[in-house]
Design a protein around this nucleic acid. Sequence first.
RNA 1: GCCGGCGUAGUUAAACGGUAUAACAAAGGACUCAUAAGCCUUGAUCGGAAGUUCGACUCUUCCCGCCGGCACCA
Length: 484
Amino acid sequence: MKSSFYITTTIPYVNADPHIGFALELVQSDVIARFKRLQGREVFFSTGTDEHGQKIWEASQKEGKKVEDYVNHYAQKFLELKNLLNLSSDNFIRTTSEGHIKAAQAFWQLCDQKGDIYKKKYKGLYCVGCEKFITEKDLMDGKCTLHPNLKPETVEEENYFFKLSNYKKQLLDYFSNPKTIIPDWRRQEAIDFVTNAMEDFSISRSQERFAWGISVPADESQVMYVWFDALTNYISTLGWPFDSAQGKPEENLFEKFWLEGEKVQTAGKDMVKFQSVMWQGMLMSAGFPTTDTIVYHGFITGEGGIKMSKSLGNVINPIEIVKEYGTDALRYFLLREISSFEDSSFTIERFKDAYNAGLANGLGNLVSRILTMAENNLEVPVQITDSELEKKFTEYIENYDLQKASEFIWMQIGLIDLEIQEKQPFKLIKTEPEKAKQMIKRLVQELYKITSHLEPLLPETAERIKKLIKENKKPAQPLFLRKD
RNA sequence: GCCGGCGUAGUUAAACGGUAUAACAAAGGACUCAUAAGCCUUGAUCGGAAGUUCGACUCUUCCCGCCGGCACCA
C-alpha cells in the first residue's frame, strides 16, 4: 500500500457564509484524515476557498465592496471552520494566492503544449442587463426574465476550449475501476455522462467582459474560466509547480502525495461532472496521475427534504450549533444522523433528539456510569492494554461509510450498558468485592476500546475520556449535558 | 422526453422467495451504579392494482407519488 495519503475537500465559492453542507464535507474528510494518521499513514489534508469568477464579482459589487476585500472577508470565515469543527487540515489554499495563480497558469500551459486547448467562437444570447450569456431557460417571451425591457443580443465571442473529448476513452477506462467513484451509482452517472453528453468545456472568458480571474498565459485578452482555475487547487496546495528560483523546497509534497501517494477527494453529489470528469481529463492531459477515489456526499436539506433557504427560515448555521452544543455534538450529528452518501434533513428537533439520545444518555452517561464505579472502587487506575480497532469498523471507514462506522460504535455502547444491567457490578461490590472489581476493570478497558474507535470521529471527546481513564476519575461535569 | 433510483412502524433506516430487523420518539413495568440516565415490554396487513410461485415485502407488468442524472447551465 502507498504509505502517503492525500485527501482534499472541494473548495467553496466565497459568496456566502459557510453552509452546513460544507461542514459535512469537512468533517467527513477530517475523520478519514485522522483515521489514516492513526493507521500510521503520512497524511496531507487540504481545504480552501475558490475566490474567482463572475458570481463572486457580482456579489462583491452588490455589497459595494472591493472584490479583494470581499473575498478576504469570506475566506476568513471559511478559515475559521478549522477551529470551529476541530479539523486536522494541513493547508488552506486560496485561489487568489500567488502560488495558486502560478500553478493554474502552469497547468494551462501543460494542457496547451499537449494540444488540448483550442480557440473556438461561441455564439449565444447575451443580456446586457445581467451582463452575461443567458440560455433559453432564462427567457420569457423572448426577453430575459430579469430585464424584460431589454432585448437580448446575439453575441459572438472567441474563447478557449479544453479538448475533453480527447480523453473519452481514457475516462471510461478510469471509471471501469469501481474505486474511482463512491457511491457506485454516481459512477454510473459519470459513465453515462461521458458516453452520451460530454463535450469540450469552455475554459476562458473575454477579459473585456469580465476581469476577475487568472489571465490566460500569453493572451491578456482572456481570463480563465473559474473551473479550470479552481480545479488546479488540488495540486497547487501541494506547492506545485516548485519554483527552482526560490531554491529547492525542503520537501516535494507534490511528488510525495500526488505522484506517489493515494489521492482521495470528497465533494457534493452535484460535482461529478467537474471532479470526476473534467478534472480527471485535465490531469490526463497534463500527464499526471488521476485521483484514486472521489467520494460524493448528498445534500443536507430542511424538514421533509426541502432545500434550505433563508426565505423559508430553515437554514442551519453550523456556527450557532457549535456555540450551543459544542464541536463534537455537531460532528456526531453529521456523522451518525446524516447519511454519508444520500440526502438527509437537518432540523433542530432532530439534532436535539440525537444529541440527547446518543451523547447525553448514550456515551456521556456510560462514561459517568463506569468511571464513577471505577473511582469509588478501584485504588489505582486500570492498566490499559491497547488493542486493535475492530475489523468491521475499519472496513466501514475504508469504504467511507462513516455512518455505519458511527453506528458500530454506538452499538458497542449499547452492549456495555446492557452488560452492566445484567451483571450488576454495583450490587456485587457489596457481596463479592474482588469479583466486582475485576468486572469494573474490564468495563473500563472496554470503555477505552470504544474511545479508541471514537478518536477519529470525536477527537476532543475521545481525548477527554482517555484522560479520565488514566486518572481513574469520573467526569467532574457531565460530558454532554442533557438539553430539554 | 430519455436513463436510473426510491416509496417498509410517528420518524430515520435494515433484511429476506417462506408472513419483517433495529435506532429515536411515545406508553407501561421492574430496578438504582449513572446525566429523571440504563434495562424490560408494547406497535408495521412492507405506496396501489394485477401476475409468476406451493408461498412475495422481496421477482414481472401497470398505476400513483417522490428524487437524481442527461436534454449543449455554472
